[in-house]
Protein backbone atom coordinates (compact mmCIF):
# COMPACT_ATOMS: atom_id res chain seq x y z
CA UNK A 1 0.00 0.00 0.00
CA UNK A 2 2.70 2.59 0.90
CA UNK A 3 4.64 1.92 -2.29
CA UNK A 4 1.54 2.04 -4.48
CA UNK A 5 0.47 5.34 -2.95
CA UNK A 6 3.98 6.77 -3.30
CA UNK A 7 4.15 5.69 -6.94
CA UNK A 8 0.73 7.22 -7.56
CA UNK A 9 1.80 10.63 -6.23
CA UNK A 10 4.99 10.44 -8.27
CA UNK A 11 2.96 9.60 -11.36
CA UNK A 12 0.61 12.52 -10.75
CA UNK A 13 3.65 14.78 -10.52
CA UNK A 14 5.40 13.38 -13.60
CA UNK A 15 2.39 13.11 -15.90
CA UNK A 16 1.06 16.56 -15.03
CA UNK A 17 4.39 18.26 -15.53
CA UNK A 18 4.98 16.32 -18.76
CA UNK A 19 1.67 17.40 -20.26
CA UNK A 20 2.37 21.04 -19.39
CA UNK A 21 5.92 20.84 -20.74
CA UNK A 22 4.74 19.08 -23.89
CA UNK A 23 2.21 21.90 -24.37
CA UNK A 24 -0.32 19.28 -25.42
CA UNK A 25 -2.93 21.89 -24.62
CA UNK A 26 -1.59 25.39 -24.48
CA UNK A 27 -2.40 29.07 -24.71
CA UNK A 28 -3.97 30.18 -27.98
CA UNK A 29 -1.67 31.83 -30.51
CA UNK A 30 -0.54 35.29 -29.40
CA UNK A 31 -1.37 38.28 -31.61
CA UNK A 32 -1.02 41.35 -29.39
CA UNK A 33 1.85 43.59 -28.35
CA UNK A 34 1.24 43.51 -24.60
CA UNK A 35 0.49 39.78 -24.63
CA UNK A 36 4.09 38.60 -24.71
CA UNK A 37 4.70 40.07 -21.24
CA UNK A 38 1.52 38.38 -20.00
CA UNK A 39 2.61 35.04 -21.44
CA UNK A 40 6.11 35.39 -20.04
CA UNK A 41 4.76 36.05 -16.55
CA UNK A 42 2.34 33.15 -16.89
CA UNK A 43 5.10 30.78 -17.94
CA UNK A 44 7.43 32.02 -15.20
CA UNK A 45 4.75 31.49 -12.56
CA UNK A 46 3.82 28.14 -14.03
CA UNK A 47 7.46 27.04 -13.74
CA UNK A 48 7.58 28.18 -10.11
CA UNK A 49 4.24 26.54 -9.31
CA UNK A 50 5.21 23.40 -11.23
CA UNK A 51 8.49 23.10 -9.36
CA UNK A 52 6.80 23.44 -5.97
CA UNK A 53 4.10 21.01 -7.09
CA UNK A 54 6.58 18.45 -8.37
CA UNK A 55 8.82 18.42 -5.33
CA UNK A 56 5.95 18.48 -2.84
CA UNK A 57 4.23 15.48 -4.48
CA UNK A 58 7.53 13.66 -4.91
CA UNK A 59 8.48 14.37 -1.30
CA UNK A 60 5.09 13.27 -0.03
CA UNK A 61 5.38 10.02 -1.96
CA UNK A 62 8.93 9.45 -0.73
CA UNK A 63 8.01 10.04 2.92
CA UNK A 64 5.02 7.73 2.64
CA UNK A 65 7.22 4.94 1.40
CA UNK A 66 10.28 5.66 3.56
CA UNK A 67 8.42 6.08 6.85
CA UNK A 68 5.91 3.26 6.48
CA UNK A 69 5.33 1.65 9.85
CA UNK A 70 7.35 -1.42 10.73
CA UNK A 71 6.68 -3.93 13.49
CA UNK A 72 8.19 -2.72 16.73
CA UNK A 73 9.38 0.49 15.10
CA UNK A 74 9.27 3.70 17.09
CA UNK A 75 8.77 7.11 15.53
CA UNK A 76 11.09 10.02 16.17
CA UNK A 77 9.96 12.42 18.88
CA UNK A 78 10.38 15.70 17.07
CA UNK A 79 8.38 18.81 17.94
CA UNK A 80 9.91 21.68 16.11
CA UNK A 81 13.00 23.16 14.54
CA UNK A 82 13.10 26.96 14.43
CA UNK A 83 15.89 27.16 11.86
CA UNK A 84 14.09 24.90 9.41
CA UNK A 85 10.81 26.75 9.92
CA UNK A 86 12.46 30.15 9.47
CA UNK A 87 14.18 28.95 6.30
CA UNK A 88 11.10 27.76 4.50
CA UNK A 89 9.05 30.72 5.67
CA UNK A 90 11.58 33.18 4.28
CA UNK A 91 11.95 31.24 1.04
CA UNK A 92 8.19 31.20 0.44
CA UNK A 93 7.88 34.90 1.26
CA UNK A 94 10.59 35.72 -1.28
CA UNK A 95 9.04 33.47 -3.93
CA UNK A 96 5.47 34.68 -3.48
CA UNK A 97 6.09 38.37 -2.97
CA UNK A 98 8.67 38.36 -5.77
CA UNK A 99 6.22 36.83 -8.20
CA UNK A 100 3.49 39.23 -7.10
CA UNK A 101 5.72 42.25 -7.70
CA UNK A 102 6.82 41.01 -11.13
CA UNK A 103 3.22 40.25 -12.00
CA UNK A 104 2.10 43.69 -10.92
CA UNK A 105 4.64 45.27 -13.23
CA UNK A 106 3.20 43.40 -16.19
CA UNK A 107 -0.29 44.42 -15.09
CA UNK A 108 0.73 48.07 -14.78
CA UNK A 109 2.23 48.03 -18.26
CA UNK A 110 -1.07 46.73 -19.61
CA UNK A 111 -3.59 48.68 -17.62
CA UNK A 112 -2.01 51.76 -16.17
CA UNK A 113 -0.48 53.10 -19.32
CA UNK A 114 -1.97 56.01 -21.21
CA UNK A 115 -3.84 55.12 -24.35
CA UNK A 116 -1.73 56.50 -27.24
CA UNK A 117 -3.38 59.65 -28.65
CA UNK A 118 -3.52 58.24 -32.18
CA UNK A 119 -5.41 55.12 -31.05
CA UNK A 120 -8.45 54.05 -33.03
CA UNK A 121 -11.51 54.16 -30.80
CA UNK A 122 -14.20 51.48 -30.88
CA UNK A 123 -17.20 51.27 -28.64
CA UNK A 124 -18.33 47.74 -27.83
CA UNK A 125 -21.73 47.35 -26.17
CA UNK A 126 -22.74 43.94 -24.95
CA UNK A 127 -26.32 42.77 -24.83
CA UNK A 128 -27.98 39.40 -24.34
CA UNK A 129 -26.51 37.81 -26.61
CA UNK A 130 -24.65 39.97 -29.07
CA UNK A 131 -21.85 42.51 -29.39
CA UNK A 132 -22.79 45.94 -30.75
CA UNK A 133 -19.88 47.75 -32.36
CA UNK A 134 -19.70 51.48 -33.01
CA UNK A 135 -16.96 53.69 -34.47
CA UNK A 136 -17.11 57.48 -33.96
CA UNK A 137 -16.34 58.34 -37.59
CA UNK A 138 -14.38 61.33 -38.92
CA UNK A 139 -15.47 63.74 -36.16
CA UNK A 140 -14.13 61.42 -33.47
CA UNK A 141 -17.37 61.81 -31.54
CA UNK A 142 -20.06 59.27 -30.77
CA UNK A 143 -23.63 60.41 -31.24
CA UNK A 144 -25.99 60.70 -28.31
CA UNK A 145 -27.85 57.61 -27.14
CA UNK A 146 -31.02 57.24 -25.13
CA UNK A 147 -32.11 53.93 -23.58
CA UNK A 148 -35.75 54.83 -24.25
CA UNK A 149 -35.02 54.82 -28.00
CA UNK A 150 -33.61 51.30 -28.01
CA UNK A 151 -35.63 49.08 -30.31
CA UNK A 152 -34.00 45.84 -31.35
CA UNK A 153 -36.81 45.14 -33.82
CA UNK A 154 -35.81 48.05 -36.07
CA UNK A 155 -32.10 47.56 -35.46
CA UNK A 156 -31.61 50.49 -33.10
CA UNK A 157 -29.71 48.37 -30.62
CA UNK A 158 -27.98 51.27 -28.89
CA UNK A 159 -30.84 53.78 -28.73
CA UNK A 160 -29.21 56.10 -31.26
CA UNK A 161 -30.60 59.60 -31.40
CA UNK A 162 -30.65 60.39 -35.14
CA UNK A 163 -31.17 64.07 -34.34
CA UNK A 164 -27.66 64.40 -32.97
CA UNK A 165 -25.31 65.61 -35.75
CA UNK A 166 -22.45 63.60 -34.20
CA UNK A 167 -24.34 60.43 -35.13
CA UNK A 168 -24.23 61.12 -38.85
CA UNK A 169 -20.75 59.72 -39.49
CA UNK A 170 -20.81 56.98 -36.82
CA UNK A 171 -20.25 53.47 -38.14
CA UNK A 172 -22.24 50.54 -36.76
CA UNK A 173 -21.87 46.79 -36.81
CA UNK A 174 -23.09 43.83 -34.84
CA UNK A 175 -20.94 40.84 -33.94
CA UNK A 176 -18.24 41.97 -36.30
CA UNK A 177 -15.46 44.37 -35.52
CA UNK A 178 -12.39 45.41 -37.46
CA UNK A 179 -9.19 46.94 -36.13
CA UNK A 180 -6.03 48.10 -37.88
CA UNK A 181 -2.91 45.97 -37.71
CA UNK A 182 0.00 47.20 -35.55
CA UNK A 183 -1.93 50.25 -34.49
CA UNK A 184 -3.16 50.99 -30.98
CA UNK A 185 -6.87 50.43 -30.43
CA UNK A 186 -8.97 51.78 -27.59
CA UNK A 187 -12.09 49.79 -26.79
CA UNK A 188 -14.78 51.46 -24.69
CA UNK A 189 -16.80 48.67 -23.15
CA UNK A 190 -20.43 49.10 -22.22
CA UNK A 191 -23.46 46.90 -21.78
CA UNK A 192 -27.17 47.47 -22.19
CA UNK A 193 -28.39 44.88 -19.75
CA UNK A 194 -26.32 42.54 -17.58
CA UNK A 195 -22.60 42.08 -17.06
CA UNK A 196 -20.72 40.62 -20.02
CA UNK A 197 -17.02 40.14 -20.53
CA UNK A 198 -15.13 40.99 -23.71
CA UNK A 199 -12.66 38.18 -24.32
CA UNK A 200 -10.39 37.71 -27.32
CA UNK A 201 -8.13 34.78 -26.38
CA UNK A 202 -5.41 35.52 -28.93
CA UNK A 203 -5.18 39.17 -27.89
CA UNK A 204 -4.84 38.31 -24.18
CA UNK A 205 -7.64 40.76 -23.56
CA UNK A 206 -10.44 40.05 -21.13
CA UNK A 207 -12.49 42.75 -19.50
CA UNK A 208 -15.96 42.82 -18.00
CA UNK A 209 -18.51 45.18 -19.47
CA UNK A 210 -20.28 46.52 -16.40
CA UNK A 211 -23.82 47.93 -16.45
CA UNK A 212 -23.66 51.65 -15.77
CA UNK A 213 -19.93 51.96 -16.47
CA UNK A 214 -17.76 52.56 -19.50
CA UNK A 215 -14.55 50.59 -19.08
CA UNK A 216 -11.63 51.26 -21.38
CA UNK A 217 -9.04 48.73 -22.53
CA UNK A 218 -6.39 49.19 -25.16
CA UNK A 219 -4.27 46.86 -27.22
CA UNK A 220 -2.29 46.61 -30.43
CA UNK A 221 -2.97 43.62 -32.65
CA UNK A 222 0.14 42.26 -34.34
CA UNK A 223 -1.09 39.69 -36.82
CA UNK A 224 -3.76 40.02 -39.50
CA UNK A 225 -6.56 37.52 -39.47
CA UNK A 226 -9.96 36.70 -38.09
CA UNK A 227 -10.37 36.00 -34.38
CA UNK A 228 -13.30 35.31 -32.10
CA UNK A 229 -14.83 37.53 -29.44
CA UNK A 230 -16.33 35.44 -26.66
CA UNK A 231 -18.34 36.46 -23.64
CA UNK A 232 -16.50 35.36 -20.52
CA UNK A 233 -19.01 36.45 -17.86
CA UNK A 234 -22.20 34.49 -17.34
CA UNK A 235 -24.94 36.60 -18.90
CA UNK A 236 -27.91 34.28 -19.30
CA UNK A 237 -29.16 31.24 -21.16
CA UNK A 238 -27.30 31.81 -24.43
CA UNK A 239 -24.04 32.92 -22.87
CA UNK A 240 -22.27 30.13 -24.77
CA UNK A 241 -23.47 31.55 -28.09
CA UNK A 242 -22.44 35.17 -27.60
CA UNK A 243 -19.94 35.25 -30.40
CA UNK A 244 -18.42 38.09 -32.34
CA UNK A 245 -15.74 38.19 -35.02
CA UNK A 246 -12.68 40.39 -34.83
CA UNK A 247 -10.92 41.25 -38.08
CA UNK A 248 -7.35 42.47 -37.87
CA UNK A 249 -6.30 44.08 -41.17
CA UNK A 250 -3.72 46.48 -42.56
CA UNK A 251 -4.60 50.11 -41.95
CA UNK A 252 -5.66 50.83 -45.54
CA UNK A 253 -8.02 47.87 -45.62
CA UNK A 254 -9.38 48.97 -42.26
CA UNK A 255 -10.24 52.46 -43.62
CA UNK A 256 -11.97 50.82 -46.59
CA UNK A 257 -13.84 48.46 -44.32
CA UNK A 258 -15.12 51.42 -42.30
CA UNK A 259 -16.26 53.14 -45.50
CA UNK A 260 -18.06 50.04 -46.67
CA UNK A 261 -19.78 49.67 -43.32
CA UNK A 262 -20.76 53.33 -43.32
CA UNK A 263 -22.36 52.90 -46.73
CA UNK A 264 -24.53 49.99 -45.57
Amino acid sequence: MPLVLAVFFWLVAIVTVAIFLGKVWWLPELVSAHGSAVDRQLVLTLIAAGTVFFFAQAGLGYFIWKYRGRKGGRAKYWHENSKLEATWTILTVILFVGLALLGNRVWAEYFQTEVPPDAVTVEVTGQQFAWNIRYPGEDGKFGRTDPAKIDDAVGNFLGIDEADPATADDVFAQNIMAVPLNHPVRVILRTKDVTHSFFVPQLRVKQDAVPGLAVTVHFTATKPGEYEIACAELCGMQHYKMRGRLLVMPEGDFRNWLKERAAL
Binding site: V38, L42, T45, A56, Q57, A100, N104, V106, W107
Partner: peptide
Amino acid sequence: VSGGVTGMLLAQPAVDIPL
Protein backbone atom coordinates in the same frame (compact mmCIF):
# COMPACT_ATOMS: atom_id res chain seq x y z
CA VAL B 1 -0.66 21.14 -2.91
CA SER B 2 -2.16 20.53 -6.36
CA GLY B 3 -4.95 23.01 -5.81
CA GLY B 4 -2.79 25.48 -3.94
CA VAL B 5 0.03 26.05 -6.39
CA THR B 6 -2.34 27.22 -9.12
CA GLY B 7 -3.30 30.01 -6.75
CA MET B 8 0.09 31.52 -7.58
CA LEU B 9 -1.13 32.09 -11.13
CA LEU B 10 -4.64 33.24 -10.34
CA ALA B 11 -3.39 35.67 -7.69
CA GLN B 12 -1.77 37.81 -10.37
CA PRO B 13 -4.06 40.11 -12.34
CA ALA B 14 -1.83 39.98 -15.42
CA VAL B 15 -1.83 36.18 -15.50
CA ASP B 16 -5.53 36.21 -14.69
CA ILE B 17 -6.27 37.90 -18.03
CA PRO B 18 -6.10 34.65 -20.00
CA LEU B 19 -7.20 32.42 -17.11
